[in-house]
């Protein structure tokens, strides 16, 4: 939680306060950006853009308690803008025949996975799936909000989420099989 003093100093564009705020949140926001970006370099670009927006628009935040949530939402929107700005068409893969993955011991698998590896699994999702998955599962946006943010229909958002979950489970299963094979 950021103290009101630091918050006010940042609003006054105090350089030292801005650096302190950056030091406090750089790792958290970089982690967020990593989930949306295809690689670390892209995440780095998004992070820098996000912090610039944060320091430029911090006066819009009314209280220090709201700052953290606002910073995260700025980073998320910057990540989405990043795609729109570059005029990169977000690829939404075909999802007509997404089957259910057979049950597996995911609990064991998740326990064995590091956070870095989990993020790399999310990074490996197709771009559209990755955006929808992050927005819905992690950030808690509704399909209506996601549709508005990405310029897609709610139906597309739902099907992409379904497909993303399927792909993640599939990869976890594959990973589990490989690990079991190694253990055997």
């Amino acid at each position: 939680m950021i103290g009101p003093e630091l918050f006010e100093q940042c609003k006054r564009k105090d350089g030292r306060a801005q650096q302190s705020l950056y030091m406090l949140y750089k790792a958290r926001l970089m982690g967020l950006c990593r989930r949306y970006a295809a690689d670390r370099e892209e995440a780095q670009d998004i992070l820098q853009e996000a912090f610039i927006k944060i320091f430029t628009n911090i006066h819009q935040v009314s209280a220090a308690g709201k700052l953290e949530g606002w910073m995260k939402s700025v980073a998320v929107r910057t990540a989405i803008d990043h795609y729109h700005k570059r005029k990169r068409s977000i690829v939404f893969p075909e999802t007509d025949h997404t089957p259910e993955v057979a049950s597996a011991d995911y609990e064991t698998m998740l326990d064995n996975l590091t956070d870095e590896y989990l993020v790399s699994l999310v990074n490996g999702l197709p771009e559209g799936c990755r955006l929808v998955f992050n927005l819905f599962v992690v950030e808690g946006y509704s399909h209506t909000e996601i549709a508005g943010l990405l310029g897609i229909t709610e139906g597309t958002s739902r099907s992409q989420l379904h497909h993303a979950k399927f792909l993640l489970k599939q990869r976890l299963t594959t990973l589990g099989v490989k690990r079991y094979e190694k253990l055997a």
Binding site: K26, L32, L47, Q48, T56, L110, E116, V119, V122, V138
Partner: peptide, 25 residues
């Protein structure tokens, strides 16, 4: 569980990040 782990995932950015941000602002 996935949400929690992803939500709390943190990673250090490059060392020169702050310089670039400070330069821009």
């Amino acid at each position: 569980e996935i949400k929690d782990r992803l939500d709390h995932y943190a990673e250090e950015p490059a060392d020169d990040s702050w310089d670039k941000i400070a330069g821009a602002i």
